[in-house]
């Protein structure tokens, strides 16, 4: 088990280095960084001085090593547009994005799994057919459209929920702000998290349904019936547990996407998270932020994948053996 974790950690570091290389390459190939910093009237001497002080005359490898070294210490440089450390900018906005992603993922799981189980067990009921139809809409409608529709119905027409922002937030410690502790913060979370989680919810529902149907056909479910186990024990103890391995995989990967693609939802709801920051960075060619964001998302994906691999072993005893052997 330990060997497996170490092996995966080494692989993860490889992935992060590759992403760091791409992020670093952006600095080199998207224009001259010096131009981004100095004013137009700067003399060639001034430019050369800045170039030297930034270490841009060093060999490529040395510069890359320096970038990685700093990134490892969470130093991603200074944002061109805000003239502030990138780490501070991202850190300020990270709680908003992570809370939104967390609530979306919980929504997707808590609604998606029961709906999937229901549609598999009561395949012919009208409610199951309704869920199926709704899930088709959820899978095919683009996120921004769902967001705008929700805003139109619940914020504009009915006026029940706020249409933008995080509401009141409470500061916890030095670096975390939360919307979980105020009524307006919780209300503000509802529409964006439904918007962001809708696709994942329908995906999970369809996955659980398909897996359940598959598992219900297996011999061990037939044998469980022949042993006279209760319907409840068969459906939830035996069948559902066997559907969980693929569900964990997809949920894990989707959690990464939820964080990475919160950009659209954050834009629609003016959510003060990392996605909005990244979009501003793209518009202003603020490369330090873009590069740091890229690395951060890669880091999250790597961590989530590692967690998913470890979860498999918890759910499926057969994998524990292969994991041990690996």
């Amino acid at each position: 088990m330990l060997a497996f974790i170490i092996r995966r950690l080494v692989q993860s570091i490889g992935v992060l280095l590759a992403v760091a290389f791409i992020a670093f390459a952006m600095f080199r190939f998207v224009g001259d960084p010096v131009n981004q910093i100095v004013s137009i009237e700067a003399s060639p001497e001034e430019r050369a001085q800045i170039r030297e002080s930034l270490g841009l005359n060093d060999p490529f490898v040395v510069q890359f090593a320096r970038y990685v070294g700093r990134a490892a210490q969470l130093d991603f440089g200074i944002s061109y547009q805000f003239r502030q450390p990138v780490t501070k900018l991202l850190g300020e906005r990270m709680p908003a994005t992570l809370e939104l992603a967390f609530v979306s993922a919980v929504f997707a799981l808590v609604v998606g799994i029961p709906m999937g189980v229901y549609t598999a067990l009561r395949r012919d009921s009208w409610l199951a057919k309704l869920f199926q139809a709704v899930s088709l809409v959820g899978v095919s409608l683009p996120t921004f459209l769902i967001g705008i529709l929700l805003i139109y119905v619940f914020a504009v027409t009915l006026g029940w929920l706020p249409s933008f922002g995080r509401g009141e937030v409470v500061r916890i410690g030095d670096w975390w702000t939360t919307g979980f502790l105020t009524a307006s913060g919780l209300r503000a979370l509802i529409l964006p998290s439904i918007t962001l989680g809708m696709f994942q919810m329908t995906l999970i529902m369809r996955l659980v349904r398909a897996e359940m149907l598959e598992v219900l056909r297996t011999d061990y479910i037939k044998f469980a019936r022949a042993r006279g186990l209760t319907r409840r024990a068969i459906n939830f103890g035996h069948a559902l547990k066997n559907t969980l391995v693929p569900v964990i995989t997809i949920t894990g990967l989707q959690l990464g996407s939820i964080i990475a693609f919160a950009i659209i939802t954050e834009t629609v709801f003016q959510w003060p998270g990392m996605g909005v920051l990244f979009l501003q960075a793209v518009q202003n060619v603020d490369i330090p932020i873009m590069a740091a964001y890229l690395l951060l998302i890669a880091f999250l994906f790597v961590v989530i994948n590692l967690a998913v691999d470890l979860l498999y072993a918890v759910v499926d005893p057969r994998l524990k053996v292969s994991v041990r052997a690996a």
Binding site: D219, Y220, K222, F223, A224, A226, R227, N242, P317, R318
Partner: peptide, 16 residues
């Protein structure tokens, strides 16, 4: 009681 044909698939793999 019932005994099925294929013992490899009659038991739930996730439980002892």
């Amino acid at each position: 009681g019932m005994i099925f044909q294929d013992p490899l698939t009659s038991l739930n793999p996730l439980y002892t």
